[in-house]
Amino acid sequence: MIASIRSEWLKLRTTAVPWVLAVIAAAVTGLLIVTVFVNGGRGPAGGPGGGPDQRLGTGAVLHTTQQLRNLAGAGISADLFALLLGVLCVTTEFRHKTVTLSLLVNPHRPRMVAAKIVTTALLSIVLAVILLAVTVTGGGIALSAQGGSFTNLLHQVPAVAPGMIVVFALFGVLGVGVGSLITNQVAALIVCLGWFLIVEQIIQGIWNGTTRWLPTGAAAAAANVTRGRGVHVALFNWWEGSLLMLAYGLAFAFLGSAILMRRDVT
């Protein structure tokens, strides 16, 4: 299994996929840091604590626990990139037909999917750590420049890091699951983005209580942060949410593997 994971990582890193995703995710996170300051702490997650007197330029700086947590955990909003990583880990192989070679080396298809799940989960954790580093350095510099406390920001990292790591890993697993079910790259990407950006919003709009059961709600619970998508409903606690996310990911992966077993690779 370790050999397969090393091979999967080599396959990924010799394509543009992980690098482009990491750079975009870091850029998005960087922009979010800027908005944290512009909005005086209301930040990307729309958390409480921002007030008019704390806007950039008024001399006030971020200082409440919630404000600093929002800043340190700004990268959580880039969790969809872990999903994309998982989707691309599988679908790139089908797009370029390298899956033929992968299956010649390892003819056991569920084992191939499992190797991709573990690899993507590990890389997603790395991505979460990179984004934490971006928020802590970028946010720290901006904070210090305004006379805020960098140390106080660092103190909030342990509060947000575990949630981010869990959520990113789970989104990675879900991505591989979706990718092995929908092997057509364009279709898989459209389904993923369509689901998270449009369909979930509609479902939440129609049935208010469903949020906690949807992947986004489960992920939000897992991260133990309010994602601030305008809906405030009771979420599961973090481990219930994590299990639900994992169940989604594994269900897709299981279904995907089962279909892959029957699929002729031509």
Partner: peptide, 11 residues
């Protein structure tokens, strides 16, 4: 098998 199963950017 066929000559297409390569990722183009891979060395």
């Amino acid at each position: 098998l066929e000559a297409t199963s390569f990722h183009p950017t891979r060395r």
